[in-house]
Every structure is written in C-alpha cells, then in structure tokens.
Design a binder for these strands. Structure first.
Lengths: 335, 335
DNA sequence: CTGAAAGCGCTTACAG
DNA sequence: CTGAAAGCGCTTACAG
C-alpha cells in the first residue's frame, strides 16, 4: 500500500479510501491510484485491515462438518461456499469425524484466524465451550445437529418425521419385524431417527426386538458385517430401516451377499448416488443437504449483518423416494 | 494479550515468549502466564502475528479444486486437510468449476488472506497469472492439472497410460469400435486421456471414427444424453471408454435405459462408489485421489520448510479394476 | 532471563 | 476532498 501511494503520489489514506470504495475521492485521483495498484499487482491485506477496523471482520467463516469426503457433508460445503462467495467471504473447512478433541483443535485454530462466524455440525455432546465465542460476537449456526448447552440458530432435516415415514412405509407393506440400524447414539439426529422408529413401532403395533436394534455404526463395512450376522440369526427381521447413507450401502451389500435382495425390504435415511441403479433400486428418505447449507449460510450472513432476531430452528423436510427395495412385501420370515 | 500480561503481572514480550514456546523463560513465570491465558480464554491472533513476523506466515493454505462436491475433489481435500492439521495449518477451500474467472476471484480472495501456499487444480488454460504469487514466495502445487506457462511442482494420475490400458483391455476383448467420451478439451488430463485412447487405437489397429469421439462432457446428464444418441446411431460402437466418473455414470444409465447392459462394454476412468454393485459391475481404471492429496501436501510443506529442490512431477499410478462391464466380448455390432 | 520501544499494513479520528 | 498522527495485536531488535 505504501508503494502504491508512492507510485500514485498520494497519501496512504487516499489509497485506503480508493481500495475501500469510499465515495469522497476525486475521480482523477481515484484513477491514478487504481492504475498504480494494478501496476504493482497490489492486493490489500485482510489481516492488517481486520486488525484496525472497528468491526474487525476477517471475511472468513469456519465450516466444520462431519467428514468432507462424505457426499452429505460436501454438498453442504458447496452450498455454503456459493453463498459465502456472493458476500466476498472465503470458507475455512474442517472435518470433525465425531471426535470432540478434534473439534476443539479445529475451533481453536479457526478462532486464532479470527473467523467471523462458525457453521458447524458439532461432534461434541455439549457445545457450551463455544459460549465464549458467541459472547465475543462470533455467530454460530448449527447444521445437522441441535445445539446442546447453548442457544443458537440451527438447520436440520426433520429426522424423527423422516424416520417415522420410512418405518411406516415398511409396515404398510406388511412388515412387523423391522430392524433399526443406526449411527452413534451420541449424535442427536441419530437419537431422533431412533425416536421416529419407535413412534412407528408403537403406532403400527410392530414387534419390538432388542436384537433388531443396532446402534453405533459408522462405516459401510461395520454395517455390512452387522447386517450379515443379523440376517443369519434365528429371528431375522424381514425389513431394515437404515439410519444414514453409509449404513444403507453396507446393508445392501450384506443382503446381496446373501442373495436376499428380493426378500429383505430396505428403506434408508439419506439418498445416495446410484441408489436408483441398484437391483432392486433403493427406497430412501431423502434429505436436502444443499438446502441445509443454503439456509445455514443465510442465517449466518443475517447475523453478520447485525440481525438480533430470536434464534431460529429451521427444519428441512425430507422426502420418501419409492424405488423398489422398500416395497418388497413381507411373506414368511427368513429361516 | 495485553490483558494476559496485566493479569500475570509481566510484560507483553514475556507473554509472547510463552505463547511461542521460546525456551528462555523462567518456569514459574511461564506457569503464571499460562494460567492467566487460560483464565481469560486467550487465543493468539494469527493475523496480527503474521503481520509482524519475519516469515509472515498465516498458517493457512488455499486449496482450489474442481468441485468439492465431487468425490474425486473431496477425497483430495480430505487428504490435504489431514496433512495440514499435523502442521497446525488450516485449509481455505474453493470450487473452480472449470471457470477461469472464478479462479481469478478465488485466488485474489486467498491472496488477500495471505495464504502461505496454493494447492490447485487450475481451471485456466494458462497459469502465468500465478507467477506473481510464486515470485512473492508463495509455493504452488498443482494437482490433477499440469502447470502451463509456469514452472511448479505437480501431482497427477498417469492419465495417458491409464486410458491406454482401459482401451487396450477392451481391444483384448474383441472390440474394434470403441467410443471415446471425454471432458472439456481444455483440461490437460482430458487431453492426456484422449492421447492414451489414440495410442491404443493405433497399437491395436482399431477403427477410428470421428462420430465415436465425444468431448466436452461435464455432467452425468450430458453424458447420458450423448450416449443414448450414440448407441442408437447407425454405426454404433460396441464398447465405450469414459473419461471420468460422472461420464461413466451417465453412460451406464444410457446403456441401462436401452437394455444393452449385456451387450455394450464399458471401462471408465476413475472409480466411484457402488461401481461394484451395479449389474454388470463396472470395470474402471481407478485413480488414488487420497494419494494425490497426500503427495501434494507433502510437496507443499517441503516448500514451506524452505526446500528449493528442482520442481517435481509426481505421477500416481492408476489400477485397472476388472468387474464385468469391461469384459463383455464384442459379438456383432448392434444394428 | 526480562522488558521498553519501534513497526508490520492497515483504518480511525481528527484537522485542514 | 485530502492528509498526518495514532493505534489495532503482535514480534523484532536491542538493552539490561
């Protein structure tokens, strides 16, 4: 900036005014400064600017998701990125992997970078450690996770209702023994999906069997193994409700390995690529991760614009997509 | 920091020393400072620190990929993130979408944040606009794209060899009329894959037909439509080589729509989830995006540690994965 | 081993 | 409409 000022023959302050598009600058001067800046390939230093500015904005937001290589997370990332770009903000991304220690590390790193806000799918059981940031004026928007121990905006799918509709769909096709295969119990949405399962069990008078409830599944491989065991057990279920996309894929693999794809019904929570091309095609309760990302980003930028409206809880509806695997009727129980 | 100093009853400089783990600090003093920092929940401001430091490091790297919601890109992101974390760096991510204007915008934004280095799959035909950054000491590592108009480290799959092996595999199963379906010609790896296709055409004496060469495919939908037309045309090919994962999925959809899945052979470049669960399962030339990300990050941190070794060109080998769709033998040409 | 002064690149608050 | 001085939070370069 000093060099630009020297080249243009003006003061530092004038360069600053031109860079920040302040109106009160003579046209000729503005042109001179712009020319000098272009010639020197000058790019303002946001860090230095943020240091002195009253609002101290760094023009970055932190985005902490479960795992950026999972399509659900990356669709959210992409949506947030798009909105952020229209505001001239960049996105600092991180994968939490359901590890609270990792969350602390990443949050601390981003705080040191003075991000202007956090959008996060927290991996912690309790997010009260973020109260300090919030009180310091850094807005928090939770996605795919309800805040616990702290008040904040959040955006998520209606998990309980979605799970209910999945299990109801199976019940309507004659199934009474429907297994639940879900993620870690520590994840609030997993709890909600299980609650939806239980709602349907009660409403439709389904048989509840402890052995048909399997939780804590994190990977396709783990789900595959558990479903293999389950389907080979004595009182095997005739239908499965799977609580997220990796579990659904693992279940499909296990069913296929046993050659039961025409017998065991499956409805999965969360859609995935090529679900419609499998045989049978997989019936799912689809989420809309892009909508979750967009809504979260909108809330974030509203807060950054100074909104002090009451915290919002945005529920993004889910949609049952009928494709085949969920419409297999219950005949006789296997074995 | 001022508050920490006051609370601990020491000078600013001493707090700075403790925060930066400089050895020459009295143990008791260090403990006092740490206690004060913890009590005030102090987090150092990287921006301010970078401003004054000799090396001016911001502890951030910019990672610009094609599209973070594509599994190929997101696997690279994830790998880079892991390596960066071990160095205490955060990652500023962006999606370029093969749009050079968008690349300029994102690069400029990251330069304003003074990222310490760029890892990028450039969308520009020519990357000489990055020379300024490079000369200013910001290392550049290219992934999945060869640098043009600039010298730098780069890491990519061996596209030409991989494509060759895919087409050779089809030729060995009796095909002489093999179509090429590829991405934008402006992408260097797409050019390489087409070159590999031509190599195999020449080596195996295959029939080369302009009508069987389709370029510029960016989405599953576009590929699906073109393959539908191609397979219904008069001189339809008996086999397809598809240049990236979205194209392969589009081709599989088109073939399925026409009921030709037992007749038309397919080998795709780049693996994708569930490729093994389709019927027939899809034979692919798999890339290793995680390895690409790790190697790129290693090169980046070597440069950031001051390495001035000659620029490296790392080629990550591809692997042909035989699953079924590529082993369908040529019988008679369709129609 | 510890500290007081200066300065990184920028904006603020003020004067002209 | 333009500029000179001070200061954001930190580290440097030096003195003790």
């Amino acid at each position: 900036m000093k060099d630009v000022a020297k080249l243009a023959g003006v003061s530092l302050k004038t360069v600053s005014r031109v860079i920040n598009d302040e109106p009160s600058v003579n046209k000729a001067m503005r042109a001179k400064v712009r020319a000098a800046a272009a010639e020197l390939n000058y790019q303002p230093n946001y860090g230095a600017s943020a240091l002195r500015r009253n609002d101290g904005r760094s023009q970055q937001i932190g985005l902490l998701l479960e795992d950026l290589s999972n399509p659900f997370s990356s669709a959210i990332y992409r949506a947030v990125e798009e909105v952020a770009m229209t505001y001239g903000f960049t996105v600092l991304g991180g994968s939490l992997e359901e590890d609270p220690a990792r969350e602390r590390t990443l949050v601390a790193a981003m705080v040191r970078h003075r991000v202007d806000g956090f959008i996060l799918a927290s991996a912690s059981h309790d997010q009260s450690h973020l109260v300090n940031e919030q009180e310091a004026g850094v807005p928090l928007v939770f996605v795919d996770r309800q805040p616990v121990g702290i008040q904040a905006d959040y955006v998520m799918s209606d998990s309980r209702q979605g799970a209910y509709s999945a299990v109801a769909h199976l019940a309507q096709h004659g199934h009474t023994h429907i297994a639940y295969l879900g993620d870690l119990e520590s994840i609030v949405t997993a709890q909600d999906r299980f609650a939806g399962y239980l709602d349907a069990v009660a409403d439709f008078g389904l048989c509840f069997d402890e052995a048909h409830v399997i939780k804590g599944l994190r990977t396709t491989e783990a789900a595959q193994e558990k479903v293999l065991q389950l389907l080979q057990s004595k009182n095997a279920p005739t239908a499965l409700f799977t609580g997220q996309n990796l579990i659904t894929m693992g279940a499909v693999r296990a069913i296929r390995a046993l050659g039961l794809q025409k017998k065991i019904a499956v409805v999965g929570f969360d859609d995935f690529v090529l679900a419609d091309m499998l045989e049978p095609a997989v019936t799912v309760v689809a989420q809309d991760p892009a909508a979750i990302g967009v809504e979260a980003a909108k809330l974030m930028f509203a807060r950054l614009s100074g909104s002090d409206a009451p915290y919002e809880a945005v529920e993004i509806p889910t949609a049952l997509i009928v494709r085949g695997s969920g419409e297999i009727r219950a005949k006789s129980r296997t074995k």
